[in-house]
Each structure stands twice: as structure tokens, then as C-alpha cells.
Amino acid sequence: MAEAMLIARGLHAYYGRAHILADVALEVGAGEVVVLIGRNGAGKSTTMKCLIGLVRPAAGEIEFAGYRTERLAPHAIARLGLGYVPEERRIFTDLTVAENLEVGRRPPRQGLEPWTPERLFRLFPNLGEMRGRPGGRMSGGEQQMLTIARTLMGNPACILLDEPSEGLAPVIIEQMAATIRDLKAHGVAVLLAEQNLHFAGLVADRAYVIEKGGIRYSGSMAELAADEAVRAAYLSV
């Protein structure tokens, strides 16, 4: 594993009285693709929201790019270079493709080639052909690409991708896998929350298995694929 850039230790989170996260710990190395895999309600989305600051953990530490972030507001964490692509995509449907990208724009980050709309349109040629189109008039797959592109405009060093394959056609999921491999090639680290083990297998280097708000297993993707017992116990496949 490369040097860790995103580290969480002992995270606890509650919604009202429900204990959603209990002692979650994980690390993502620079340029690494890590998957957080678990069923619905296991705590994947809450973990992601804690990392970006949309949910404040009740206890625990989060470190990103050398800064302690568990008490920071979402915009401050994003400015440190952590990108967030939410599960429901959350495109600004009234804004055009170009305007959606503008919302995500942040100053260039040292040591990284800055993302511009032109550069993103090379990565997502579809988007380039519809830059004046409102986000609301795009298909689910196109919206998913736009939300990733929008996040990249912030020149993140690491991206949180929450269930990007949900609700997409198999053929689009395969494109999504290719995109994630592209990002990795550009040196962007990715933490992926997923239920689809097939998809995770196409892109991830390492995996954490989360169940009932706690990390139950961690290992390389190859080890997880070989470990029938873990998959049967936590992933019900």
C-alpha cells in the first residue's frame, strides 16, 4: 500500500438514537482504489458522509492529506482535496452541464495537472456534446458521468464514490469501471462504496467489508475473492 492519504480511526455516528457506525477504521493510500463493500444499511453511505463532513461523527478521528478533518465543515474538507460523489448523483438539474462543472471548480492543486472542462470532455466525450444541456435532461448514465466530472473540477487528490453502479445498465457499469481505472491512472485515489462485488472486482485494489456499522474484514481484492467464508458471512452471495 502506498502512503496513506485518508485515514479514519474509531468512527462512531448516530442518527437520533440509532448507532449507525461503531468503530469504523480504514485507510486509503495515494493513487489507490479501495472498495467499502456491504449491504444496504450497513453504514457505507454514512461512512462516506462522515469523511466529507456532511455527518459529524460522535467520536473518532479522520485525517486527510495530513490534516485532522473530523470537526471541519464539508466545504473546508472539499478544499483540502477530497471529492464526494453521492449515491443519488444530485446533479443540479436546472443548471447546464457547463454550469454544473463551474460549481465544482476550485483552484489548481500543486503537483496535479488541473482539470478543465476541455480536459474532462476528452475523458467523457458524451458530456462535451451536451455542454449547454440542463442536467435534468440527461439519462441516468450521463448524469453519473457528470457528477464525477463535476467533482474532478475541484482537482481532488481522492474521490469518495458512493454506489456509482446503482440503477445503471450493465453496459454502462462497464464504462464506469473503465472511468475509475482512468482516474487511477491519473493518480487520483478512490474510495468506492459498493454492493456489486463483480463491479468492485473490476476496479479495486483492496476491500473493506462493512456490516452493522463496523469493519469486519480487510484485505486485497484477490484475497476477498478467494475467501468464500467471509463472502458468505457478510455479503450474502
Binding site: S165, A169, P170, V171, I173, E174, A177, N196, H198, F199, L202
Partner: peptide, 12 residues
């Protein structure tokens, strides 16, 4: 397969 299922790598 071409318009929807793809190469079949993302399901069992």
C-alpha cells in the same frame, strides 16, 4: 448484449 448487457462482467 450490445445495447444493454455488455460483456457480462458485472453480473453473475
Amino acid at each position: 448484449q450490445q445495447v444493454y448487457l455488455g460483456g457480462g462482467t458485472t453480473f453473475g
